[in-house]
Design a protein around this nucleic acid. Sequence first.
DNA 1: CGCGACGTTGATTTGCCTCAACGATTGTGG
DNA 2: CCACAATCGTTGAGGCAAATCAACGTCGCG
Lengths: 197, 197
Amino acid sequence: MLDLLHRYLSDHLLLTQSEIDRVSASVQCRHLDKGAMLLSFCESATFVAFVLRGCLRAYFADDDGSEHVLHFAPEGWCLTDTESFLTRKPSSLAIDAIEASDVFLFERTALHELRRDIPSVSAFYNATVERALRLLQQRVTGSLRKTAEQRYRAFIELYPGLDARIPQYQIASYIGVSPEFLSKLRGRIVRDKSRTS
Amino acid sequence: MLDLLHRYLSDHLLLTQSEIDRVSASVQCRHLDKGAMLLSFCESATFVAFVLRGCLRAYFADDDGSEHVLHFAPEGWCLTDTESFLTRKPSSLAIDAIEASDVFLFERTALHELRRDIPSVSAFYNATVERALRLLQQRVTGSLRKTAEQRYRAFIELYPGLDARIPQYQIASYIGVSPEFLSKLRGRIVRDKSRTS
DNA sequence: CGCGACGTTGATTTGCCTCAACGATTGTGG
DNA sequence: CCACAATCGTTGAGGCAAATCAACGTCGCG
């Protein structure tokens, strides 16, 4: 599994061999079965997870027990409860594996040292934080101005191919509609497409 | 106006006198008339604004021209287009003054040096970034699980007293309902309260 | 096979929007 | 000082988007 990390690091982060070794040494590899929990509510998120294979989801629970998906993280994405990770407070999110997944965990202290010592890790970290911010802002603006159909299309664009991999009710939860309504929406989209073609 | 900054800095940031002087020297004071623009669409946000008096708003425009409020910033709050500030890309948000306001502008380079040299400025900056993240996340979770009434109550709690200061349609835009509906909502809330008391 | 998880479909209800009309308040020029 | 417009909030009628509830179809799997 480590060779996958090596390949990823040299392809995407332009690291030297010694830097790759350094990163490899301070990372935890972890396999998650489908449905396995990575972070439970009220734990402290001491790590950032990098997804090599599979797909994670971060979600929160309602007062009445229903769950809402905040983020998906398929291969190549990073995921954590940002607030808990930054402030060390107990997490308001939970993270689990939608598919069987392989992930790398960067613990806070190890990541801190890597960022201090390796500029391209620092740049990667900053880019990741910025992306998290941008995504959150886009979700807010999307929910303020977009219809359910537009939000569904935005989801498709953000996570290409993911709609075919994960249960539809997870997507419904992500875009903020009921599973039944998403089903009707998709029916309408397909029907419209076949009519115009 | 600078003495207000001095008072604020010594009260909230626990700076020494020399540090206060250092901060004061690298800040821009600016008065904004009611309705004045601080940042227009597609500019680059080169600063973080700190609000001493009055109230700013950050908003974005829809395809059809309608505006949606993303943030308010009354006294004591910081505001910028975070993404544009971090990435130097053109802003997707605009910022203007809802009330006549006094603000301090921290330019990117000056702020960077202050953070590097003064630990408590750095801590303040980090706390501000974390708050921005937390607020965005709360807006997403709020829009996924809350009714319009719950979002209105959350607004009241987040910005105490602000509802009496700014036009009601701005609040409606912030919580994502039409002005008419917010009016009916408030009517209902008052009626319910008087019935139970 | 039968069971559970998931998706679909239809009937009904509800939350919120749109449109339109009407006060209340404020500011402004004659 | 008053007439007037402009701005903002309120109220009601009607409509649409999406939720809820219930029933049923389908698939994978023990």
